[in-house]
Design a protein around this nucleic acid. Sequence first.
DNA 1: GTGAAAGCGCTAACAC
DNA 2: GTGTTAGCGCTTTCAC
Lengths: 339, 339
Amino acid sequence: MATIDDVARAAGVSASTVSYVLSGKRPISPGTRERVERSIRDLGYRPHAGARALASARSNVIALMVPFRAGVNVGIIMQFVGGAVAAARQHDHDVLLLTQDDTSGVDRVASSSMADGIIVMDVEAQDTRLPLLRTLRQPSVLIGVPDDSSGLSCVDLDFTAAGRLAVRTLAEAGHRHVALIGASRARYERRANYAVRMRAGVQDEAELRGVGVTVVPSEPSFAGGVAAAVELLALDPDVSGVVVHNESALPGVVAALAERGLRVPQDVSVLAVGAADAAESLSQPLTSIDVPGHDIGRVAVEMVMAHLGGETLAGTRLISPRLTDRASVAAPARRALAG
Amino acid sequence: MATIDDVARAAGVSASTVSYVLSGKRPISPGTRERVERSIRDLGYRPHAGARALASARSNVIALMVPFRAGVNVGIIMQFVGGAVAAARQHDHDVLLLTQDDTSGVDRVASSSMADGIIVMDVEAQDTRLPLLRTLRQPSVLIGVPDDSSGLSCVDLDFTAAGRLAVRTLAEAGHRHVALIGASRARYERRANYAVRMRAGVQDEAELRGVGVTVVPSEPSFAGGVAAAVELLALDPDVSGVVVHNESALPGVVAALAERGLRVPQDVSVLAVGAADAAESLSQPLTSIDVPGHDIGRVAVEMVMAHLGGETLAGTRLISPRLTDRASVAAPARRALAG
DNA sequence: GTGAAAGCGCTAACAC
DNA sequence: GTGTTAGCGCTTTCAC
C-alpha cells in the first residue's frame, strides 16, 4: 500500500501538500495539484482510514442502530437503511451497523471514536438509551420521538398528521363510522411513540368532525389481523371506513372482510398506513399513507451532518404524510349511511 | 477521553503494560493486572479505534456488501445481516455496511484499511466484482457461488440439494407430475446461481425418479405468481405437486390455485423454498425448505475469521437444506394419478 | 514481569 | 503557495 509519503516523493512535494490537495483546505497551484493527482492515481493511493481518524479526530463513519427484533417491519427498515447509507455516502461517510440488542454498542462505538455520529432507530417513549445518548461527545439523531426529547434531535413521519389525514380522507368520502386497526397491545403498553401518536391523530380528527371511531389493537400477523377485523365488526357493525396501521396484520384484515362478504371499497373503505409495499403488493392494492423510510433515513443523516458542521440546535423534524390513492376508499354504502 | 497514558499513570505502570493487559499477549502479574484493570474502569478508558488500527494494521471491522435492489427478498437479507452482525460481535468485530450500487465500495474500504475482511452477498454466476476481490489484501467471502470460484471462499444453501429434496418429497408422496415455479426470466438470464442450481436439482431428481417436470419462471410479484400458475396449469393440466422458489410470487400462486378451485393439499401439493416467513405467514402455511439466512451470515463471518486467523484454504461451503413440514404436501388426488 | 522507544500514516499548526 | 514538524493514541520490538 502506498502512503502519503510515497505520493509526495513521486510528485516532488511534501506530504502536507498532498494532504492539502486531498482536503482542499488551502490553495494549491495548478501545476502542483496536477502532479500530485497524477501520482495519486499512478500509485493507487488511498489514505489509511485509521491514521486519518487518529490525526483528524474524525472517522468519517456514522453508526446506525437497527432493530432486528421481530414485529418491526423489515421492509421499512431496509428502506430506511438504504436511505441512510446513500445519504452518508454523499457526505463521504460510511455506515457502521449496530443492532438493538447489542446494548453496549453505542457506548463502545462512541467512546472508541469509531463513529462521528449515531442514529438510533425505533425509539420508544421512555427509551432507556436516551441518558447515554445525551452524554456522548458525538451528535445523535433518533428515529421516533420520545416523551422527553430535550437536547436530542429526532426525525419521524408525522404520525399525528397521518392519523388526521386518514380520518379526514374517510370523512370527506362520507364515512361516519371509522376505525383504526393499530399496533399490538404490547406496543401501546410500551408506548411506542408512533402507535400512540397515530392513534391520537385519528381520535382528534374523528372528534373534530363528529365521526364515530373505534380503535382495535392487533397482533402483527395474519391471524392477528383476522381477529382484529372480527372484533371490530362486533364492536361497531356499522363501521364503513377502516384505517390499518399494521403491515403484518393487513392481509388478515382484508381476508376477514372478504370472508364476511364485504367488498372493498363498495361495502367498506380501507386505508393502509405503513410500508409502501404492504399496501401495494396485496391482491387488491390499497390506498395508503406510506412511511417514507428512505426519506427519513436521508434526513437523519443530514441532521447528523448538520451537527458535525457546527449546527448546534437540536430539534424534532416531522415529515408530512402523503396519501397514495389506489381506489380503496369510496363513499360508504347505504348500509352504513343508514346506520 | 482518557488515553492509554492516563491509565498507565493512574496504575503506576507503563503504557505498554496497559496494552499487554488488554491484549493478553504477555504474562502480567496478578497485582499489576488488578491495578490496571481498576484504572481502566475508573477512567472509563476505551482504546481509540483509529490509533489501534494504525498501530496494529487491524481495524476489527468487517465490511458487508448488501443488495438493496428490488426483487431481492428483504426478510432474508435482514436475517443474513443479523446473523453476520451477531457472529462478528462474538469475534470482537463490528460491521460496516456497503450497498451493492456503491460500486467502488469494496475497493475504497479495502484499500483504506477500513475493514479486515469483506463479505459480498448475492453473487452472480459471472459476477463483475470477482476480479477485484481476488486482488485484495483482505480475505473475502461470497454468499452464492459464481461459475469460477477458484481462489475465493463461498457459502450458500445447497440449492441443488434443495431442489432434489423438494422433488423427492413430492415424488415419495406419490406425485408423477411436478413443477417448479422459479425466479424471474431475468434472473435466469443473468444466471443467478441460486436459481440455476435449484432448477438443476429439481430437474435431476425428477429425471432420476422418472417424474414429469415443468419449469415456469415467475416475476417476483403477486401478479407474477398468478400468471405463472395459470401458465403452469396450461402447460401441464395434470400437475399435482408444485415447488415455488419465489417468495414474492408465492401469494399469487396460492391465490391462483384457489381461484381454480384447487385445494392445497387435496388437489395440489405446494412446497415453498425461500424465506421462512414467506411460507409461514400465508393464510394457509406451507411446507417449506427455508433459506437459513441467519446461519449463512454466521458461517460467512466464521470463514472470514478463519482466514484472519491464518487459515489459507479457500473453498465453498454448502449448507444442507432442511424441510419444515406444514402439511401442504399430501398424496395426489385421483385426477392426477389417473393422468 | 516490566519499561523505553520507535514507529504506524496522517493532519494541521507554524514557518517562510 | 509550499515545506517542516509536532503530534494523534496505540502496538510491539528490544532491552533488562
